[in-house]
Structures are given as structure tokens and as C-alpha cells.
Nucleic acid binder design. Structure first.
Length: 147
DNA sequence: GCCAACGTTGGC
DNA sequence: GCCAACGTTGGC
């Protein structure tokens, strides 16, 4: 299993909205960047990701699961763009801020720190464990429903 | 609201 | 294939 990080401006699509979608999840549409798209193409059902609020909050607020692999993005006719579907798994009790990640030596290589503009990022198992620990959240999969 | 970083586009 | 111009993201 691999780990990822999904950025969203809460003004556009927030964790609360993601949670409200429940197990149906939400298509992660709108990505128009090759690196981010390639990351989505590499995802498998069951992979876990952090849900990060950019601009407002600038913190990891939840954990999501990939529930459908990459398929054409329904919001464009351009065949270059794909997206996955993710569902909220559980909130992060103590949201992990960007500042906290920058201050943590174990996260110095994290894409969130080194490649700020990438909207869908890979996360290493080590980084995953460190951020989960900082956030006070269990790091493993959870097949129960969120609500 | 500004601007640095970075990705994409298009002229040559 | 280079690079200048331009657009977008996202931190500040």
C-alpha cells in the first residue's frame, strides 16, 4: 500500500464536505498538472492519503482512502486528465500544520515542505507514520464507516 | 493582495 | 530544443 497527500482549498472543497459524502466518496477532479495526475495514476484502491487544507488552515485535517482508481476526469473533455475517487476515513484529532511539518526534522524531505505547489503528492511510509503520530491518529487502514 | 516558485505554451 | 512570456498555486 502506498501513501499520498491531497491538497484542497477549504473554500473550494473542505474536509467537512468530504466527510459529508460518506462512503460514496468524491471524484478528485480538476487536477491539471502532469505530476499530480501521474501520482493519481499510480494509486491503488485501498491506498491512504492525507487531506490537507491549503491557504486556510494549512494543515492536515483528515485521512482518506482511494476507492476508485484513475479514470477520465468528467469535468473536462481533454483526455489528458484523470482522477481517482477518495472517501473520508477518519479525522486527524490534532491537525498537523505546515509549520509543524517544517519544524520536524524527520519531515524535511516531505513534498509538502519541498514542493509546495504540487497538489497531489506521494508520502513515504516514514513520513506517514510521523505525521499520524503528530496528529494523534491511528496510521493503519480502517474499514469502518466514518459517520 | 502580493509575489516567489514553478509549470506550460508558443515563437523562433 | 531553447527560452521568454504567461498563468497558476499557495505561502506570507
Amino acid at each position: 500500500m502506498n501513501f499520498w497527500l491531497f491538497k484542497s482549498e477549504p473554500d473550494a472543497w473542505s474536509w467537512d464536505q468530504q466527510v459529508a459524502r460518506g462512503d460514496a466518496g468524491e471524484e478528485w477532479t480538476g487536477v491539471r498538472n502532469y505530476q499530480a495526475r501521474n501520482n493519481m495514476r499510480a494509486m491503488k484502491v485501498g491506498d491512504l492519503g492525507f487531506f490537507y487544507h491549503s491557504n486556510i488552515g494549512k494543515e492536515v485535517v483528515g485521512i482518506v482512502e482511494v476507492i476508485r482508481e484513475s479514470a477520465p476526469d468528467s469535468t473536462t473533455d481533454d483526455p489528458r486528465w484523470d482522477c481517482v475517487v477518495i472517501r473520508a476515513v477518519r479525522p486527524v484529532p490534532k491537525p498537523v500544520t505546515l509549520d509543524a511539518c517544517k519544524a520536524e526534522p524527520a519531515l524535511a524531505q516531505m513534498a509538502l515542505v519541498t514542493n509546495t505547489r504540487l497538489s497531489v503528492q506521494p508520502v513515504t511510509p516514514r513520513e506517514w507514520a510521523v505525521v499520524c503520530d503528530m496528529g494523534g491518529v491511528a496510521s493503519g487502514p480502517d474499514h469502518s464507516t466514518i459517520s
